Structures are given as structure tokens and as C-alpha cells.
Computed example of a mutant assay.
Amino acid sequence: MSLHLRGVKPPITSDQQPLTKVPKAPAYLSVQARAEWKRVVPVLVSRRVICAADLAQVETYCLMAGRVREIEEQFSAAGGLIDVKLFGVQNRAAQTARQIAATLGLDPVSRARLGNNAPEDDGDNPLSVS
């Protein structure tokens, strides 16, 4: 069975034309989204895993992470009362941010893939399928 059929994600490797300096955050980002940009983009640039074409995905991640924080601030301002509609929006934004973070290497599992470029060795496993 090939690696692609096992649900194993390919390792994250350096991009062929990675960004070498941190781009300025887009002007339309909210305060919370801009803070997330300033937190994660320097990390991605230093890891050499993003190029100019990836910036739209990074922007979306920052927008979604910022939206989660904005809604949480609204909940706090309302004394902890939760608006069910806002909670749904917050939940979807958090899911989207989590999914994009994984593709960018911003979660522990995808960070582990950064350092592991070798395929799995199933040689000693009698249950492995070749």
C-alpha cells in the first residue's frame, strides 16, 4: 500500500523560493489579526516554508484567528453571556484557523513533520502492508 493511501501527510519542506524577509501586514487586518500576523509570519519566514503565493492563506489564517479573539472579547464585554449565533461564527472561524495552521506548519504535528523528511520504515512490523 502506498504512503498516499494510508492517510500520511507528506513532510513539509523548504519552499523553492521562500520569502527572505517578513512582509508588512495588510492594512485591512483588524488589531487582533495584525497581532497574529506579527506573531506567526516571522516564524514562517525563518523556517523558509512560505513564498509570496502563500500569503493569501496566511492572511486568511490571521483573519480567522483574529475573528475568534474579537468574538471572545465581545463575550467578555457582555459579562460572559454567549450569543448562540456568534458562538457558531467563532466555532467555524476557529476550525478554519486550525486547518490552515496545520497546512502552514503552525501546530505540533505539522512542526514534527518539518524535521522528519524520511519515509516510515515498516520493515520489522509483521502487520505492515507492502
Rank of each mutant, 00 (worst) to 15 (best):
A56K: 03
W37N: 01
S30T: 10
P26N: 15
Q17R: 11
P10M: 13
L29D: 01
K9P: 00
A56G: 05
K21P: 07
V58Q: 02
A35T: 05
K38A: 15
I50W: 00
S30W: 08
G7N: 06
V43I: 14
E59D: 05
A53Q: 02
R69P: 00
C62D: 08
V58E: 00
V58L: 02
D54W: 01
A52N: 15
V40A: 07
E70Q: 08
V41G: 00
K21C: 14
P10T: 14
I12D: 05
A27V: 14
K21T: 11
S14H: 15
R67F: 03
Q17W: 11
A35D: 07
Q32C: 12
P23D: 02
Y28A: 13
E36W: 01
L63Q: 08
D15E: 12
R48I: 05
G7E: 07
I71H: 00
Q57H: 08
T13E: 11
V68G: 02
V43A: 10
P11M: 07
V58A: 03
M64F: 08
P23H: 09
E36K: 04
L29E: 01
R47Q: 10
C51F: 11
P23C: 07
R48N: 08
I71V: 00
Q17T: 11
Q32D: 10
V40P: 01
M64A: 13
Q17S: 12
V49H: 06
